[in-house]
């Protein structure tokens, strides 16, 4: 089942890639087509996905593949969703506020259960990262379009 899924996903990616390469306009006279490499690579990928599907067909029916740890996968998907929300919230609320919220959540995810530790992370994580990257290295911090804690603190 897993081998079929891998082959099908790869085939889907290659079909999208072929379609994308096909959208590249034709070359002007005396030039080479800008889509030649992406097109060739996606055709090769489609061929490899075919090989994966073929090997999936050849696998014996009794071979059910590796045992899956669904709990771990769900946890990782959960952390990925947190990551997506965290990076998106930079645009809305700047760096400090999302980091103050994300730090204890991620620590909790990794098994930290000390309430004092989690509470400290709310203050220390944004503070330390802000000092290292935005003060010492001089990077301009992302500005929150909805509310920016840094602007509010700076008055």
């Amino acid at each position: 089942m897993r081998a079929y899924a891998e082959g099908l996903v790869l085939a889907l990616i290659s079909i999208v890639a072929i379609w994308g390469a096909w959208q590249v306009p034709a070359a002007s006279p005396g030039d080479t087509w800008a889509g030649i490499v992406p097109f060739s690579a996606s055709i090769a990928l489609l061929f490899l996905s075919g090989l994966l599907l073929l090997s999936a067909v050849r696998q014996t029916a009794g071979d059910t593949g590796q045992e899956q740890d669904n709990g771990a996968t769900l946890q990782i998907i959960g952390l990925f969703i947190i990551a997506l929300i965290y990076q998106q919230s930079f645009r809305w609320f700047g760096y400090l506020l999302p980091t103050a919220i994300a730090a204890p959540i991620v620590l909790y995810f990794f098994g930290v259960r000390s309430w004092i530790g989690l509470a400290l992370s709310v203050v220390l994580c944004p503070l330390i990262f802000h000092l290292i990257f935005f003060v010492l290295l001089g990077v301009y911090p992302p500005y929150g379009e909805v509310f920016d804690l840094l602007s509010w603190i700076q008055g």
């Binding site: 990794f110 992370s121 994580c125 990257f133 290295l137």
Partner: peptide
């Protein structure tokens, strides 16, 4: 359990920087 969350947070600020 503290190290990996810190690496997680560093990845975001490093990618932005």
């Amino acid at each position: 359990n503290v190290l990996y969350p810190l690496i997680f947070l560093t990845a975001f600020v490093a990618a932005y920087s």
